[in-house]
Computed example of a mutant assay.
Amino acid sequence: MPMTDRRHWNDPALPFVEARRACHSRACYKAHSHPTFSIGAVDSGVSHFSGAGPGSKRLTAGTLVLVPAQRVHACNPEPGGAWSYQMLHLDAEWLLRLRHERGIAVQGAGTAALVTRDAALYRQFCQLTALLFSEASVLEKEIALVDFIGDHDERAFAALPMAPAEDAAALNLEEGLQGLADERLAHLSLEDLARWAGLGRYALIRACRRATGMTPHAWLLNARINRARVLLRQGGDLAEVAYRLGFADQSHFQRVFKVHAGTTPGAYRAGR
């Protein structure tokens, strides 16, 4: 059954897309990345978007930001403030195939995030997310999604500041992590990571910061949370997911998940 609570939507019949929305949220996120291409829209309030580059970008209502897969970023309300927003996460391989059908290049992993205040595009995005959260048929939803993505070439949007080009060793490491078993991912050491990347420990730390803006520990924690998202979408038991991914206990897992995903693991999984 599709997930249909007020905050999250995903449907096993459309495994390449997931939607999220938040109203008057004060939740703050740590810097993180997704294996998905993400589109966010600010509905009200003010948010500050930061990536692995210098400074931040102030986003106001009606702004859309497009974040390529693996681009480290954070988007948080102004201090003391609240904001409302919508998010769409698209499987990177699915998006790449769709763009190839249209003859349009897609922003690759690690490239700059993009921003636009096109009012018509914002309205179309809101209509799309409303349809995804509705009781419309799977076919209607897929048609609307493909139509929306196919109508727009994001290369026309303004690029946000970003870090220097990603380091090849860290990119290779990222690909390797995606294929690891859950238990192995949970217990990697700095020495393991360095050996895998073919670097010394200090060189790995520098490479990881150049590539992601994060330390190896923060980057690995982010990878574990992304794996947890997959397991929770499959209906995984919270305690079992926490154990498999090496968290001290379910409470620890919940705290870490919330600062990365803006919601609790239970709420994320709810409605399956």
Rank of each mutant, 00 (worst) to 15 (best):
N10D: 07
A261I: 08
G176P: 05
L160M: 11
L188W: 03
D91K: 00
L59G: 01
R26D: 02
L220N: 08
A163F: 02
G266Q: 07
G110C: 08
L145S: 03
V17C: 13
L171F: 08
A74W: 00
L190I: 12
I225F: 04
G40H: 15
V115K: 15
H252D: 05
Q254N: 06
E240D: 08
R233N: 05
D43Q: 15
T212S: 10
K141N: 04
G236V: 05
T264R: 00
R117Q: 15
V65D: 02
A165I: 10
D249H: 03
E166I: 06
M162L: 13
S38F: 07
N222M: 03
R233Q: 08
V138Y: 05
C126P: 09
A248F: 03
H152N: 14
L66N: 01
F247E: 06
A109Q: 10
P12R: 02
V46K: 07
P164H: 06
V67W: 01
R195T: 13
L220Q: 00
R195A: 15
R209V: 12
R58F: 01
A169Q: 10
Y268V: 06
A136P: 05
H252K: 06
A52H: 09
R233I: 07
L121A: 09
V241M: 04
D192W: 03
V146H: 07
D249Q: 04
D5I: 00
P15G: 11
S44N: 15
E140T: 15
A267L: 04
A270D: 02
T212Q: 04
R184G: 04
A248R: 12
A156R: 03
G235D: 03
G246P: 01
A181Q: 13
L95W: 05
G81A: 15
E183P: 01
S50T: 14
D151A: 12
F157G: 02
W83C: 13
A120E: 09
Q86G: 13
F49L: 15
V67T: 09
F133P: 03
R210L: 12
G236Y: 00
A52F: 08
W94H: 10
Q107E: 05
L238Q: 02
D147G: 08
N226Q: 13
A211V: 01
V67Y: 00
T212E: 02
T116N: 07
A270C: 01
F247L: 00
K30D: 06
L180A: 03
R195I: 12
R269E: 00
R209A: 11
V241C: 02
M3S: 05
D91M: 02
G200V: 12
S84W: 07
M162A: 10
R6Y: 07
T36W: 14
Y29W: 07
E135Q: 12
R210D: 12
A52T: 03
A120L: 10
V42T: 11
E101F: 11
R58C: 09
R102I: 10
R123H: 09
F253L: 06
G271C: 05
E101G: 14
A170Y: 00
A207E: 08
D118N: 09
L199K: 03
T116C: 07
V65A: 05
F247Y: 12
R233M: 09
H34V: 14
L98F: 07
G108N: 08
V146G: 09
S47D: 13
A120R: 12
F257K: 00
